[in-house]
Nucleic acid binder design. Sequence first.
DNA 1: TCGCAATATATTGCATGCAATAACTCAGAG
DNA 2: CTCTGAGTTATTGCATGCAATATATTGCGA
Lengths: 219, 219
Amino acid sequence: MPIPQNAAAVDRSLLRDDVYRRLRDAIVDGTFLPGEQLKDGELADWLGVSRTPVREALLRLGASGLVVVVPGRSTTVSTIDPQAVRDARDVIAAMHGLAVRETAGRLAADDVERMRDANRRFAEALAADDVATALDADEELHRIPVAALRNRALEAVLEQFEPLVRRAELLRFSGDGRASVDRHEQLIELLAAGDAEGAASVNFDIWHSLPAEDDAEAQ
Amino acid sequence: MPIPQNAAAVDRSLLRDDVYRRLRDAIVDGTFLPGEQLKDGELADWLGVSRTPVREALLRLGASGLVVVVPGRSTTVSTIDPQAVRDARDVIAAMHGLAVRETAGRLAADDVERMRDANRRFAEALAADDVATALDADEELHRIPVAALRNRALEAVLEQFEPLVRRAELLRFSGDGRASVDRHEQLIELLAAGDAEGAASVNFDIWHSLPAEDDAEAQ
DNA sequence: TCGCAATATATTGCATGCAATAACTCAGAG
DNA sequence: CTCTGAGTTATTGCATGCAATATATTGCGA
């Protein structure tokens, strides 16, 4: 048989992949704060593995822009650089644009129906002010043309850069949005009371405290 | 100073990067043939380094689709999968599309002039049937909007997937195109002589022998 | 002669040890 | 009191050794 596939084989679980996912999620959900230093030795101890798979995972995270590796010196969680986030978002948007253009008129009927369904749930969640559910439905909808296209390179790009954008969004809304809502109320009251300085201070907090770069020392 | 940059630091040369570039170039220019098995131990000996930087480079090449790593089993140069090449080309085209759209009307005057100049040289090379120079000019032209945009994520995507496409093009034309030209002449003569079988055989060679998947054993 | 199983072998994955280097500390001089 | 410099330390990069596992080989049995 002259057709030896580039098939991806049966993925036996690799430590480096597990470590990658755990570190990625920890950075995205804010367990590791922007600016925080990551020492491969400590991470290895924490995860119960050796430095080798940790280092391989950190290299991947470096390619995603989630960590900054300074060669012989340090490895830190990247600070939230608005420009870098915009750049990644532009690339992601281009990927979705490609998927939509290429699958237009070629989607299976039930794919279209699943998109309609997702959009229905999206609208309902928005009406109910359920942001989390709305975001889930939104993601589900946009993933359908991507999955239908079956372009591995495109999917690799999305997997590489989505975490960076997702982290910015999550930290922006402080995880569950509760703190954001509280701060919004604070801001509104201060505005109503005519406290310009206080309002400005809270406003500054809202836009700068979460993606902070210097309040990160722990662990 | 509360603005700790995610700056990339002064890059002291890392063995893993050197190894990555050498292996990438060797695969792209056909030194390592599609389907050929790469053993990290042998590569390490060959390059005079240890397995560690070699393995890190191979992981990057795996992300680019230039090598296929089967976990506990083998590491091989990927065969030239036309679909994978098309996928990568689509992603690359989308990146160039993004760069062009975003820089439209915002390019510096001398960038525009450099594009005009590159296009002039492109046309001249085409008129002179100088394919290599034409391809260089073409690449130079398209790189200008990309460089102007200064989007690190976009540049990372291009660096990741361009080698895969470039290899397919190079192997397709057998390096300098000389062999291709010879084979074309062969084909033409056979056609003129009415040798249908011979012509069909050469034609098959032209389209299948270079991106071959099974004539690859040598080290 | 063919098939199956057990063993040997080869290759990757992971662990660990050593080296290089940049930052921090602290002492001394001006 | 400040600045400079040497020594120490901490962290990453690379080398190497061990373990796990899939494949190849060989011998035995039907």
